[in-house]
């Protein structure tokens, strides 16, 4: 039996409507599959619709059309506890780590939230949070720190710890390293690589840095004006881009 994709997206579309302005199609009928253990890159310039794709898949934005299947299950219209159940399998890491944590709560509170939501007791959560922080290369004491008390790189490690806390199968990283210095980016990428191996994670890696995608991803999709214009193995796409936009993009890299 062929392997079932962990994520399958069909005909995904988002049209933003606002009064007095023409409708804007941010994501235009795209479809793709992500296999278990695979790392799929999504690249494109700003405004091409990459982040909207992430927000649609994670149901943070309502889609206009299309379907999202998580491990074979249609999550397009789930809400409430059924949607929460889906988040057990799918977690997200955002671009600005400090803003992705509640400033009034400690990192430990944020990391442990999903565990508490799924019924773990206080002592258990505390132990797990300490283990998760260590796994992500931070001292266990960081559980008591607030987001503004740690650096951007440390905060992103904590955000990764939060994302993997309930052992999801799919991680969606939306420009997860873009706000970090290159030396820190390298460490965070190494961390994601280690976790990917250890937890057999599938990753949708949204990024505008093609060189980084080439390093980290098994496959890449190029997005332009809401459509996926090219898809393939990163080395292939970079050496022999077929689409005109992809060609221009690769040529512009200094």
């Amino acid at each position: 039996m062929p392997m079932q994709p962990i994520l399958k997206v069909e005909n995904l579309t988002k049209v933003f409507k606002s009064n007095g302005r023409p409708d804007f199609t941010a994501v235009d009928h795209i479809g793709f599959e992500l296999m278990p253990g695979e790392c799929l890159g999504l690249i494109g310039e700003s405004g091409s619709g990459k982040s909207t794709v992430a927000n649609l898949i994670t149901r943070l934005t309502d889609m206009s059309e299309g379907r999202v299947l998580l491990d074979g299950r249609d999550i397009t219209r789930l809400s409430g506890s059924a949607l929460r159940e889906a988040y057990r399998q799918m977690q997200m890491v955002f671009q600005t780590p400090t803003e992705s944590f509640d400033p009034r709560h400690t990192l430990g509170d944020g990391i442990g939230e999903s565990l508490r939501n799924f019924g773990a007791c206080r002592a258990e959560v505390k132990k797990r949070v300490a283990a998760l922080l260590t796994q992500c290369g931070l001292p266990a004491e960081f559980a008591d720190r607030y987001p503004h008390q740690v650096s951007g790189g440390q905060c992103q490690r904590a955000a990764i710890a939060r994302a993997i806390a309930i052992e999801p199968r799919l991680l969606i990283c939306d420009e997860a390293t873009s706000a970090l210095d290159v030396t820190i980016q390298k460490e965070v990428i190494a961390l994601l690589g280690r976790l990917r191996e250890a937890m057999h994670l599938s990753i949708l890696f949204i990024c505008h840095d093609i060189a980084l995608v080439q390093q980290f991803c098994d496959r890449v999709m190029v997005m332009y004006k809401g459509k996926i214009v090219e898809e393939g193995v990163p080395d292939e796409v970079i050496r022999n881009p077929k689409n005109d936009y992809t060609k221009r993009l690769i040529e512009s890299i200094l």
Partner: peptide
């Protein structure tokens, strides 16, 4: 620093 910069391999 230089080792951390992702470089495109063409």
């Amino acid at each position: 620093l230089m080792a951390a910069v992702p470089r495109l391999k063409r």
